[in-house]
Design a binder for these strands. Sequence first.
DNA 1: CTAACATGTCAACATGGTTGACATGTCGAT
DNA 2: ATCGACATGTCAACCATGTTGACATGTTAG
Lengths: 152, 152
Amino acid sequence: MSISERDIALFFLGWRGFVDTADAVLAEHGLGRVDHRVLYVVVRQPGITVSELAGALGISRQALHRPLSGLLRRGYVTRSASARSGRERALSATAAGAAVERAATGPQLAQLEHVVAAAGDAALAGWRAVMRGLAEATMAAAPPRTRHLIES
Amino acid sequence: MSISERDIALFFLGWRGFVDTADAVLAEHGLGRVDHRVLYVVVRQPGITVSELAGALGISRQALHRPLSGLLRRGYVTRSASARSGRERALSATAAGAAVERAATGPQLAQLEHVVAAAGDAALAGWRAVMRGLAEATMAAAPPRTRHLIES
DNA sequence: CTAACATGTCAACATGGTTGACATGTCGAT
DNA sequence: ATCGACATGTCAACCATGTTGACATGTTAG
């Protein structure tokens, strides 16, 4: 068994199906994909700085500015002084922010559970191994906080 | 073993690593991600119609118009009368179009091969099973030609 | 004190997508 | 033969997400 060109289509279609699941929920809250990604990281890495967050998402600080401002304005994220340094800001999710993140992430987890229930635990292990491998290259250039997202 | 929240991050990072691989090549040719997707499908489904292509990519006919015009102008894709019906157009890739598609897809296949060489064939089988499951929901609403992309 | 650093913010622009509207040509059914 | 449904081409206005470049402000380290 070896790699087929179809695996590329499979990857694309699988990713699309997965993303669509969250999009449906996010639309009800007037949020976009970026907002979901920001909330996802901030919920799991409370106290993360702006630069670290931008690095984890793989976008520039300027690209982060608009969506982050929106989340701050809606009260989903708070920005406070960092404990380490006064020039850094510590970002955290509010209860409301964590709730909306959970609302978007939950269905995705359920979808994965459903698929794995049919495919088996061995399939999940294989899926993780391949995904880890693919993420490696990108991870090397990413800030430390990024790695925390997928490691214990 | 069960689904973890980290699997979502793993999925995102894996997808990003995979897409970045093709992006690097595409940038050298002055093409974008859409162009790659269009070429990928057209190469594998020669004679596909405009509507079918839009459906397979999951975008509107209007969204397809700009990138497709560009690919026609550059001579990567041809548009001819359909054999079935005079109101349909049959899209096909030229030799140049197939070449640039191969240049972008090749490194992605190599990356997958590399990862699977380390993770093992069982991991690949598991990865495919999970991806197939995730693609299912989306596939149901997609045109028949879409399914051909991942089936024999 | 000064230079490096983290941040906030604005502007101009690229890419990829949406909906709506309208014209053209073709096919099928009456 | 006409008429409606269909596939397409194309334009416009707009949205979401990203880029680079520039510049201001406050903070920390040497």
